[in-house]
């Protein structure tokens, strides 16, 4: 057991966990933040994507110990306050970008990361670019049509915000 400390959604978290604990287990089992999901064993579905030090990463493919001292944001911490929604969350709702909701947290975390990167680089986030950027996120319900639309809309909402 090792004490692993990090900042999760703006709050200090510290838990004694075994060295083989995955970041997703730390988040789900130890912090009980269950919005981050596990949908595969091979790092492909993206249901577990969180932001570590501001970058999207697959929390199922990372040890909690490797995130010692890191700043982690999960879907629960994306909005600035409890009563608020992040513009990307609003966009997913308004564009029917989710059905069963299981892949949604990972999709939203991937989407906010991608928009941030493109906006910082001054690159245009085209439909093709969004589809390419979603390579690591699998959805079985929506056929991606409305996820792509949500991200297009979320990107403009994030620019406006």
């Amino acid at each position: 057991m090792t004490k692993i400390t990090m900042t999760v959604n703006g709050k200090a978290a510290s838990k004694d966990v075994s060295d083989n604990t995955l970041l997703v287990e730390y988040i789900r089992e130890h912090l009980r933040l269950t919005g981050t999901h596990v949908g595969c064993d091979t790092s492909q579905c993206g249901a577990c994507v969180v932001h570590v030090n501001g970058q999207a990463m697959k929390s199922c493919t990372m040890l909690a110990a490797a995130a010692e001292g890191a700043t982690v944001t999960t879907v629960e911490g994306l909005a600035t306050s409890k009563d608020d929604l992040h513009p990307m969350q609003v966009a997913f709702k308004e564009n029917h970008g989710l059905q069963c909701g299981f892949c949604t947290p990972g999709m939203i975390m991937t989407a906010t990361d991608m928009v941030k990167r493109y906006q910082e680089a001054g690159k245009e986030l085209t439909e093709d670019a969004i589809r390419h950027e979603l390579e690591g996120n699998i959805c079985r319900c929506t056929g991606y049509h409305n996820i792509v639309k949500s991200i297009q809309d979320g990107a403009s909402k994030m620019t406006a915000a």
Partner: peptide, 21 residues
């Protein structure tokens, strides 16, 4: 009509079986 159920899913508050202990 926009979906009533969406808020819990987009905020990570859905409650799936594996979320329950």
């Amino acid at each position: 009509v926009l979906r009533k159920e969406d808020k819990r899913f987009i905020t990570g508050k859905g409650r799936y079986t594996d979320d329950i202990i």
